[in-house]
């Protein structure tokens, strides 16, 4: 007991720790809590009922549905391709692997607006691939396919970046034991590999969802933000705001903020398990 007390007394105390703690709290308040509170407050100032009514309007419903489908598409495709790519990057040896690894991070480095323009030049009427699809009568730019591609681009690295380190640390021995015990590669993937990396994958997926919902720049450029056609939730907030329809803007923004908050909780949960 005595030893325990001396140990406790000796715990290192940062000088000025109250000041520092206060600073951190103030900083987080200014950057995160105040803006969030402001939005929620605005919604109530404008009247919760009016706001909800605004959200149920067809334009707003359409925009949220658009965001939902884009997010779903990004999650499904990025999960499949992200897993395949992560497995290839960790397990296979081939020339140009380093270059490929570098390219995976490109969407982090490129500004979404620039990404949007890249896709316009590629898939636009005069673009390399755009003219091909144009002949077949498939519209990519200013339509859902283009928005899907833009969303995929900006969310592409998340699953890979989260799964690769987990996969690397986990090694191949468990998979090899499964093989020796008679499990096929497919059985091994489902029963051994996937359960072992599921929290890393879950984290990657949560980040993908957050990014898809929040994406603005790249989607703005490729979609043209046509109301009831190519308008997503974030584009809707922007449009309402520029139209001086603050009630609509704040209501939609609040819904987006709440979703973000829920995702944040998911991230916290998965990080604890990794």
């Amino acid at each position: 007991m005595k030893l325990l007390k001396t140990l406790k007394r000796k715990a290192v105390r940062l000088p000025l720790r109250h000041v520092l703690t206060g600073l951190v709290i103030a900083w987080i308040c200014i950057l995160i809590v105040l803006p969030l509170g402001c939005i929620i407050n605005k919604v109530f100032v404008h009247g919760l009922f009016t706001c909800l009514k605004g959200l149920l309007e067809s334009t707003s419903r359409y925009a949220f549905a658009m965001t939902f489908w884009l997010t779903l598409g990004a999650v499904v495709l990025n999960t499949i391709f992200g897993l395949v790519l992560a497995l290839v990057l960790v397990r296979q040896k081939f020339k140009g692997k380093l270059l490929l690894e570098g390219l995976i991070d490109l969407p982090f480095a490129v500004s979404p607006i620039v990404a949007g323009f890249m896709f316009i030049t590629l898939f636009g009427n005069q673009g390399w691939l755009g003219s091909f699809f144009d002949e077949k009568g498939i519209k990519i730019i200013y339509a859902f396919p283009g928005m899907m591609i833009a969303t995929l681009f900006v969310t592409f690295p998340f699953v890979i970046r989260e799964v690769v380190p987990v996969l690397r640390e986990y090694g191949v021995e468990q998979e090899e034991s499964a093989y020796v015990l008679g499990a096929s590669q497919w059985q091994t993937f489902w029963r051994v590999t996937l359960p072992s990396i599921k929290w890393g994958l879950f984290y990657g997926i949560t980040l993908t969802i957050a990014r898809s919902i929040g994406e603005f720049g790249a989607v703005l450029v490729v979609s043209g933000a046509i109301i009831n056609k190519t308008q997503t939730a974030t584009l809707y907030v922007h449009q309402q705001f520029t139209d001086f329809n603050y009630t609509g803007a704040f209501a939609a923004a609040m819904v987006l903020a709440i979703i973000s908050f829920m995702i944040l909780t998911g991230i916290q949960l998965s990080q604890k398990r990794i």
Partner: peptide, 10 residues
Amino acid sequence: FVFQHYALFK
């Protein structure tokens, strides 16, 4: 096969 670090399914 018994692996060096046992490779149990965690």
